[in-house]
Amino acid sequence: MLLGYRASEQYNSYYKPVYYRLAESGGQERLRELLSQTPSIQIYDTIESQLSELAKINNPQRQLTPEEYKVEVARYLDGKDPDEYGVWVYYPWSQKLVHLLDEEEFVQVRTSRNLYKIKPEELETLKTKKLGIIGLSVGQSIAMTIATERICGELYLADFDTVELCNMNRLSNCNVYNLGASKAVITAQKIAELDPFLKVTCFTDGITADNIDTFLGTGSSQLNILIEECDSIDVKILSRVKARAKGIPVVMDTNDRGMLDVERFDLEPERPLFHGNLNEEGIDLTKLKDLTSQEKLPMLDAMVNLSALSDRMKYSLSEMGKTINTWPQLASSVVLGGAMVTDTCRRILLSETTSSGRYYIDFKELIK
């Protein structure tokens, strides 16, 4: 084997960046040690440009001249070495070291173009929210859209699976050197490279009966919304049973005909699963993994409404086990799902919507 190891091994371990604040005691020594031990490190330092952006958004009524930008940057630095301003963020998986504004100013600049589509007080509210995503194929697009729009301050990501070549028809944030790596970890790395201050925790064993309560959390650490995007029928049902018991709303995108499911267990604690389409009587959560395909069919129908699927998806399902081994997903549908789920979750978090239901954004019907 080339070089005696698999390159993907490094991706299955690291997804949290390391911070170096040179103005803090020991910060410079720690950074010097990193630099001496990592000769191949790549350094990116645009702190003065970021400070110029900060000056620009803090002076919206002025058209600053180049000289005025220099004055504003100098005011922020206040006589300090530019190296000591902000924070140096190290990404172990790529050996990149990036000089950034520290968290408060970084978030202020990065989300400045959200105003006033999202009001300042709403941004502050969203910073306190925690979302969980089960399933990081469709879920990766959702996670990245959530992180990009920054509608929360913390994300839990769960998936036991690794990236395969056939996944890359829809995983727009994966590269060929990510093959074999954990889907959850890869997603967390991409989020950290976008926003190192967004807290992310990975559950690389996926969701099980043993860890579902930890994933959903309790009290002040509980998820505000569960986003369920996994393929396993047992996890789909188990996660909803647990979410309902804890009063956590569940949102799901099916990436066919733009179908979006919203179950407001936070507002309706007795709400039946899947809008009452699933017969909950007699369901044994411990035996769901052992169901035959025939036994799963009525459950799958309750989850996605098989009769309402697009003609091409219906045909695809008829070919499963014949010419294909799983149902298809298109990148355009997955990206649409990321947008729909993010928009819906933001409005739930800001109490702009209270609705449960099943909704369709079907381009074939809308655009003829």
Score class of each variant (00 low, 15 high):
residue 146 I to H: 09
residue 349 L to A: 13
residue 367 I to V: 05
residue 191 I to P: 04
residue 29 E to K: 14
residue 36 S to Y: 09
residue 100 L to M: 11
residue 153 G to D: 09
residue 330 L to D: 03
residue 83 D to T: 06
residue 67 E to C: 06
residue 93 W to N: 12
residue 18 V to T: 14
residue 225 I to L: 12
residue 50 Q to M: 10
residue 91 Y to T: 07
residue 123 L to I: 04
residue 198 L to P: 04
residue 81 D to V: 08
residue 103 E to H: 05
residue 303 M to I: 15
residue 89 V to P: 06
residue 13 S to R: 15
residue 284 D to Y: 08
residue 167 N to S: 03
residue 64 L to I: 01
residue 272 P to Q: 06
residue 122 E to H: 07
residue 281 E to R: 05
residue 11 Y to R: 14
residue 208 T to D: 02
residue 144 M to F: 02
residue 56 K to A: 01
residue 317 L to P: 04
residue 314 K to S: 01
residue 83 D to V: 04
residue 280 E to Y: 08
residue 231 D to W: 08
residue 335 V to Q: 06
residue 93 W to S: 12
residue 307 S to M: 09
residue 352 E to N: 13
residue 83 D to S: 13
residue 86 G to S: 04
residue 357 G to A: 07
residue 291 L to C: 10
residue 8 S to P: 04
residue 132 G to K: 10
residue 331 A to I: 02
residue 169 N to E: 03
residue 48 E to H: 11
residue 174 C to R: 02
residue 120 P to W: 01
residue 332 S to F: 00
residue 117 K to N: 02
residue 363 F to M: 06
residue 151 I to V: 04
residue 255 N to P: 05
residue 88 W to H: 13
residue 352 E to V: 05
residue 134 I to Y: 09
residue 53 E to G: 07
residue 265 F to K: 09
residue 37 Q to N: 14
residue 300 L to I: 14
residue 348 I to A: 05
residue 250 V to W: 10
residue 94 S to I: 15
residue 204 T to C: 09
residue 312 R to S: 14
residue 126 L to S: 01
residue 214 T to H: 12
residue 334 V to C: 01
residue 25 S to P: 05
residue 160 F to M: 06
residue 146 I to N: 08
residue 18 V to I: 15
residue 253 D to E: 13
residue 145 T to E: 02
residue 179 L to V: 14
residue 22 L to C: 07
residue 7 A to Y: 10
